[in-house]
Amino acid sequence: MGVAAVAFLLGFGLMLLVMLPNLWALLAGVVVGGAAAAGTYGTLAGREQSRRRLSAQLDADQERLRAELAGIDQTVRSRSAQLPPSTKGQLRMMVVGLEDIVDRWDALSRYPEHLDAVNRTIHRHLPRTLELFLALPDSEKPRHAVEFKTQVGLLAEGVAKTRDTLVSKNLQALQTNRWLIEESMTDPDEKLFRDHGL
């Protein structure tokens, strides 16, 4: 083999060494890529676990509130003779409204101030109001009926506001959905002409 051939082979070998990836660079790429993939998987898995925990918490809250409402409803029905006649219907309608709100608990979770208010109403305010009035001697109840009726009215007003908020948000979501459907079904060229009055 001539000197020129040996020089060519050495040059070609050096060129191949330069062109071939460095083993350490390959190893570093695999490690960094693997770490990035693991981080992404961890983030996604963490979000899913968080979503499941939140969903389980909402379900547990919903069941607890349903049980408390059933107890309140039972008290209103069984002790109805001791309640002022003007409040009986209002109390029953309030329980029905609260049941409707609890059925939409997932939607309400986006409004923490309403969520807390409903929790307090079912867990503390409504049972306490009933308990205090029913604990009065029957002879004293007519004298304090106006105060009881005022408290029930305040609670009913709060329940109505929360329910109205939920319904209006559901209507807004429904309207937004209609706009999205209309947008996706409309030919873009036709929309462009219509938007420009042509």
Results as ranks from 00 to 15, higher is better:
residue 90 Q to E: 04
residue 107 A to F: 04
residue 189 D to C: 08
residue 42 G to Y: 12
residue 139 S to F: 06
residue 124 R to Q: 14
residue 171 L to H: 07
residue 139 S to R: 04
residue 134 L to W: 00
residue 185 M to H: 08
residue 66 R to G: 00
residue 11 G to S: 14
residue 20 L to Y: 09
residue 85 P to S: 02
residue 99 E to M: 10
residue 15 M to E: 08
residue 4 A to R: 09
residue 42 G to W: 10
residue 15 M to Q: 11
residue 26 L to F: 11
residue 182 E to I: 00
residue 48 E to P: 01
residue 171 L to R: 06
residue 138 D to N: 04
residue 8 F to L: 12
residue 149 K to C: 03
residue 163 R to T: 08
residue 142 P to D: 03
residue 112 P to K: 00
residue 137 P to C: 04
residue 21 P to K: 03
residue 144 H to R: 09
residue 1 M to S: 13
residue 1 M to H: 15
residue 51 R to T: 10
residue 2 G to K: 14
residue 18 V to L: 15
residue 116 D to I: 13
residue 148 F to C: 05
residue 84 P to N: 01
residue 113 E to D: 13
residue 140 E to F: 05
residue 102 V to D: 03
residue 60 A to V: 11
residue 54 L to S: 14
residue 96 V to T: 07
residue 69 L to N: 02
residue 97 G to H: 05
residue 63 E to S: 14
residue 187 D to V: 05
residue 44 L to R: 15
residue 107 A to S: 05
residue 74 Q to H: 04
residue 184 S to V: 08
residue 49 Q to V: 10
residue 6 V to R: 12
residue 85 P to R: 00
residue 11 G to C: 08
residue 182 E to W: 04
residue 55 S to L: 00
residue 88 K to G: 10
residue 139 S to Q: 11
residue 169 K to Y: 09
residue 195 D to Q: 05
residue 91 L to F: 00
residue 184 S to P: 04
residue 97 G to C: 00
residue 61 D to Y: 14
residue 165 T to F: 15
residue 80 S to N: 02
residue 89 G to T: 02
residue 135 A to V: 05
residue 144 H to T: 12
residue 54 L to M: 12
residue 53 R to T: 08
residue 143 R to W: 07
residue 91 L to M: 09
residue 155 L to V: 10
residue 128 R to T: 07
residue 6 V to Y: 10
residue 61 D to G: 07
residue 53 R to Q: 11
residue 64 R to S: 11
residue 171 L to T: 04
residue 57 Q to W: 06
residue 90 Q to L: 06
residue 11 G to Y: 08
residue 119 N to R: 08
residue 66 R to H: 00
residue 128 R to I: 01
residue 47 R to F: 13
residue 35 A to K: 10
residue 125 H to P: 09
residue 136 L to C: 06
residue 32 V to Y: 12
residue 104 R to N: 01
residue 128 R to L: 07
residue 74 Q to F: 08
residue 7 A to P: 01
residue 22 N to K: 02
residue 29 G to R: 04
residue 17 L to Q: 05
residue 20 L to P: 05
residue 25 A to L: 12
residue 24 W to R: 15
residue 103 D to L: 08
residue 29 G to D: 13
residue 148 F to L: 01
residue 163 R to Q: 11
residue 79 R to W: 07
residue 65 L to N: 04
residue 45 A to P: 00
residue 140 E to V: 07
residue 71 G to D: 10
residue 81 A to L: 05
residue 132 L to M: 05
residue 98 L to M: 03
residue 185 M to E: 11
residue 38 A to V: 14
residue 4 A to I: 10
residue 31 V to D: 06
residue 183 E to S: 12
residue 38 A to P: 13
residue 75 T to L: 10
residue 178 R to N: 01
residue 144 H to K: 06
residue 117 A to P: 09
residue 54 L to G: 12
residue 84 P to V: 04
residue 26 L to I: 14
residue 187 D to I: 00
residue 78 S to I: 01
residue 110 R to G: 13
residue 137 P to Y: 02
residue 152 V to G: 08
residue 143 R to M: 07
residue 151 Q to V: 05
residue 12 F to P: 01
residue 62 Q to S: 00
residue 103 D to T: 00
residue 115 L to F: 11
residue 47 R to A: 12
residue 147 E to Y: 15
residue 46 G to D: 09
residue 152 V to D: 00
residue 43 T to N: 11
residue 190 E to D: 02
residue 3 V to G: 12
residue 104 R to F: 06
residue 172 Q to I: 05
residue 186 T to C: 07
residue 154 L to N: 14
residue 113 E to M: 12
residue 63 E to D: 14
residue 4 A to K: 02
residue 37 A to W: 15
residue 179 W to A: 15
residue 27 L to H: 13
residue 61 D to V: 09
